[in-house]
């Protein structure tokens, strides 16, 4: 009955940057808005403290709590979307691993521990490649990108 493996999303991206800059971008509210289509990460980053992803005005938040904060190598928080009816699902978990490689950084994002039958898995699988592509652009060129689905939401 329980044979179906629980879904897990893993994404690896290589960025011309330093671990410190990548870690700062993942944890700084103002910087996050520049690559996360205007969304902001908000927390005091103490273990067990609340984490929120403040979505654009008119949209609801993602909430969670801080699980790991080891600058500049590892960050993790629980991830509980409160939009599109997803608040009925329990939280999942996202972890960031940052490894230095001669003037570059390998960033590995693992999003797992989704509740059974999770609908948020599909959403985050679509969302992370854009967020992390935009983060790479911001750190390498100074310009982030806005996801097309946010544009659609704005004009709707």
């Amino acid at each position: 009955m329980n044979a179906q493996p629980r879904p897990k999303f893993v994404y690896v991206v290589y960025i011309v940057s330093t671990p410190e800059k990548v870690f700062a971008a993942l944890t700084d509210e103002k910087t996050s808005a520049q690559y996360w289509s205007g969304n902001r990460v908000v927390s005091d980053w103490k273990i067990g403290s609340p984490f929120a992803l403040k979505l654009k005005p008119g949209m609801h938040d993602v909430v969670g709590k801080v699980l790991a904060f080891d600058p500049p190598r590892r960050l993790a928080y629980t991830f509980h979307p409160h939009h599109d009816g997803l608040e009925r699902e329990g939280p999942s978990r996202v972890a960031f691993e940052i490894e230095p490689l001669a003037g570059q950084v390998r960033l590995t994002v693992t999003h797992d521990e989704f509740p059974a039958g999770s609908a948020s898995f599909k959403q985050v699988s679509k969302g992370w490649p854009h967020v992390l592509s935009s983060l790479k652009s911001l750190l390498e060129t100074g310009h982030g990108m806005v996801a097309p689905w946010y544009k659609e939401a704005e004009t709707a």
Binding site: V16, L101, R106, K136, S137
Partner: peptide, 16 residues
């Protein structure tokens, strides 16, 4: 594909 993106956006590839 990270290196392809860097080449197109910055003109410089990665060296991994």
């Amino acid at each position: 594909l990270s290196s392809l993106k860097s080449v197109l956006e910055t003109g410089k590839p990665l060296s991994v």
